[in-house]
Design a binder for these strands. Structure first.
Lengths: 199, 199
DNA sequence: CCTACCGATCGGTAGG
DNA sequence: CCTACCGATCGGTAGG
C-alpha cells in the first residue's frame, strides 16, 4: 500500500492557506484549522511551532513562486514587448495556480512580525524593479513608447496581473494564458480603435 | 467658542477606518480603538452598538462615494473614450481621497455578516455593469476597438483604478488627475511604440 | 464617559 | 495526537 497522502505538515499548510484566504489570518483560530483537518487544537503543535510560522511559510512560498517564474526571464534576449507578454503570463499563472496563498500574500502580509514584514517589503521592491527594468529596456530598444513614465507603466502592468486574484476562477473557461494574452494585447495595442482620432 | 470638532461618532468612524485599514478588522480590538480616541473600551458603546456596525458603516460610506462619483456619468452624452477617462479619474479620486475606508472596503468586506455581505456583492456587480456598459458603448460607436472582450476589458480597467489603493500616497507629487490621465493614455493608446511592428 | 465585570474564546503548553 | 489546562484578551453590558 503506497502512501499517496501528503505529509501532515503540508496538509496543515494547505488548510491554513485556504482558511486564511477565506476568513483572514486573525479570524481563523487554530481550533478552526485543527477542525478542518479532523484533529484537536493542541495537536497542531506537534507539527508546527506557532500560528505565525504558518503565515510566514505561506507568504514565503508564494514569493518563491513569483521569483522562480519571473527571474529566469531576466537574462533572456527577447524584444521587450514579447518579454512583457511572457512575464504577464507567468505572473498570472502563479496567481491562478495558487489562488489561496496568493490571496493570503496580498491580504495578510501586513500582519507579519517586523523581520518577516521587512523581508516581504524588500521582496516586493525586487518585483517592481524587475518590471521597471523590462519597461526601460523596451523604451530604449524602441519597442515601447518613448514617452512612457517607467514607474506608472509598471504600476499599470502590476495592477492587471495582481488584481486577478480577486476575480480569476480556476477551472473556468479562461486559462491563465488566455487572460495574459488578452491583457497584453489590450495593454500593448491600446483600447482605442485605430480609426479613431489619433493626435 | 465655535465647536469645530467633529461629532464623536464621526471621530470613532475615522479612527476605526484608519485602524481597520492598518491592522485589519479582526486584529483591531475595541480597546485599541477606544485608546486611539482617549477613552475606555466600554465607553464606545455609548455611541455605537457593535463593532460590526462600524465595519458596515465604513464599507457603506465607501460604496456611496463610488456611486456618487460614477453614476452621474451614466447619462451624459460623451464619446466613450472620453467618458472612460473621466470615470477613471473619478474612481481614482475616490480611492485617493478615502485611502483608509477604500482599503477597508477592499480587504474587510468578506467579514461582513451575510446580509451586509450580499449587499456589497450586489453593489460590486453594479460597478462592473457600469464599466461594461461604458465599454460596450465605445465599441458600438467605434471609439473603442471592435475586437474587445467586454468583460476582460472591464477587468483591466478596474484593475488599474482599484489597485491604486495599494500604492497611491496622498500628499505626494501625483494628484489623482495625473494618475488617471497617465493610466488612460496608456490604456487607450497602448504601450507599444507606433514605429514597432503592427500586425 | 468610567469602573468593574460577564462568558467566551484566543494561542499555546504539559503530560501522557 | 488527545485531554485538560494556562493566562490573556476578546466584544459587550450594568450601574452609576
Amino acid at each position: 500500500m503506497t502512501d499517496t497522502a501528503k505529509p501532515r505538515r503540508e496538509q496543515i499548510l494547505d488548510s491554513a492557506s485556504r482558511l486564511f484566504s477565506e476568513r483572514g489570518y486573525h479570524a481563523t483560530s487554530m481550533r478552526d484549522l485543527a477542525g478542518d483537518l479532523g484533529m484537536q487544537g493542541g495537536s497542531l503543535y506537534a507539527h508546527i511551532s506557532s500560528k505565525e510560522e504558518l503565515l510566514i511559510e505561506i507568504v514565503n512560498q508564494a514569493s518563491r513562486q513569483f521569483d522562480a517564474a519571473l527571474f529566469t526571464l531576466r537574462g533572456e534576449a527577447m524584444p521587450a514587448d514579447q518579454k512583457l507578454r511572457e512575464a504577464m503570463y507567468r505572473h498570472i499563472r502563479v496567481v491562478a495556480d495558487n489562488m489561496d496563498s496568493a490571496t493570503v500574500f496580498f491580504h495578510e502580509w501586513k500582519h507579519l512580525s517586523p523581520e518577516a514584514y521587512a523581508r516581504v517589503t524588500g521582496w516586493r521592491d525586487t518585483i517592481d524593479a524587475f518590471y521597471r527594468e523590462l519597461i526601460t529596456q523596451g523604451v530604449q530598444e524602441g519597442t515601447l513608447r518613448a514617452d512612457l513614465d517607467i514607474k506608472m507603466t509598471s504600476y499599470l502592468v502590476l495592477s492587471a496581473v495582481n488584481w486577478a486574484y480577486t476575480w480569476y476562477r480556476p477551472g473556468g473557461t479562461l486559462a491563465p494564458r488566455d487572460v495574459a494574452e488578452q491583457f497584453a494585447d489590450m495593454l500593448l495595442g491600446g483600447l482605442r480603435a485605430p480609426t479613431g482620432a489619433q493626435p
